[in-house]
Amino acid sequence: MITGFILDWIGSLAPTLIGLIIAFILAIFALRTLVHLCCSNKNRVRSSDDSSVTVGCAVFLLCSRPMNRFVALNCNCPCYIPRPRLRFLVRLALLLFAILLRVLAIILYATSKTNTASKATLAFACAFSIIFPLSSISLDFYQYRVWWHYRPSCDTLPRSTMSKKHIRYIPYHLVGNNRNDMHMGNKPCDTMSPDVKCRNRNLEHLIIFHLDDYKPQERWGLLPPSEAANYVGFHRTKAEFAISIAHSDFHPSMTPPQMLGFGVYFARSIEHTKGKARNAGALICAEIRMGRVKQITVNQIDTVRNSKAWWKNYDTVYYNHENDDRDEFCIKDPAQILRWVIVVDEENDTKVGEYRLDTEFEDTWCGCI
């Protein structure tokens, strides 16, 4: 029975904290009432004036988001800001551990040698309490879906029509300048320098941590064959076009002028999609199967301009610009695009503000709560 109670208590740490907070609030009110009854009339008026302070303290303890996170063991660590799935998995592991402890406690209660009524009562109470961590898991799953399965306000198409290549939308407030150099796990990669490149090819990582003027790979022609097969490219377009792509696929540009010929265009550098794209409103980061590649320089552009003649022998035209930041390439077939992530600009997406996702971590205290 004692072992079962210990396991039950460890699995009920969050409710214990909540109980302590409530007990502390009740003690404040009881002490204030006692002082109010024992003081003189003059002091009684003064203590009455202080009632708003007492109530304010109680409201703060009950309604403060940092306090709620503390008592619910819902850590708000900065490393979770760009990684909502990680927070969900950590919370899920803690809650499942709590449920496991309670199941063990139920077994110990039910098999103890004490009187039948006592052990049956404890076993039933412990079993009933499992409802609450299960409810917490349900709420966490909802929050996880809001973040991970996020859809911008401009996407009103049925979710069932989403392309299998579409990994996810990334809310705009998670990317680029929103990284904080002072927060461990939230700051940009330490390897982001002219001489040292991040080797992480995860599309979400590139968009979230390397949005500004970053080239995730060497020029295609400088890569070893093992890395050259698939390449990462960036495509900027209108928000409505990006939504259409998310629910179908890319479409080749077939209307002149097209500098590298007809096809789908991508830039090597995120920053320089701004100078190349004819439209703006959304950014797409995609992994592309390059296939047979025709490399050209500025003197050879006329051999491919406004043409698809190169389609016969090549899958991709790669333009080695004089400034390697401005390299770009054109693929002939959207089937070469394997997967992508999309960021819709703030002016085209009101849901971040409506869901208050942009203020989710603003009340972070002591780096965590």
Rank of each mutant, 00 (worst) to 15 (best):
K238Y: 07
H251I: 15
Y214T: 09
F241I: 15
F234W: 13
A282D: 01
D213Q: 06
Y265N: 04
F250D: 07
L203R: 10
Y265Q: 06
K276S: 11
R236K: 14
A239K: 02
H183C: 09
K238C: 08
N299E: 02
V264L: 07
A242Q: 06
S193W: 02
P188Q: 09
L283G: 09
N299Q: 09
S193G: 08
S248I: 05
N202F: 08
G233Q: 09
V293S: 03
R236G: 02
I207D: 03
A246M: 09
G291V: 01
P224C: 01
R305D: 00
L222E: 15
V264E: 03
G185K: 10
A242S: 10
Y231M: 04
I301C: 04
V293A: 00
F262N: 09
C198G: 01
V298C: 10
F209L: 05
P188L: 02
Y214W: 15
N279A: 14
I284C: 01
C285Q: 03
T297K: 06
H210P: 05
A239G: 07
P224D: 00
E287P: 04
S193K: 12
K294S: 07
Q300T: 01
L211I: 02
T237N: 02
A282W: 04
S244D: 13
V232Y: 04
Y231Q: 04
E240C: 09
D181Q: 11
C189P: 10
F266V: 07
R289I: 05
G281Y: 00
V232P: 06
R199C: 12
K215D: 15
R201E: 13
F262I: 01
I301K: 09
Q217F: 12
F266T: 05
I245Y: 04
S244E: 13
K197M: 12
G221F: 06
L222Q: 14
H272G: 00
E204V: 15
L260G: 11
S193M: 09
R278S: 14
D181H: 11
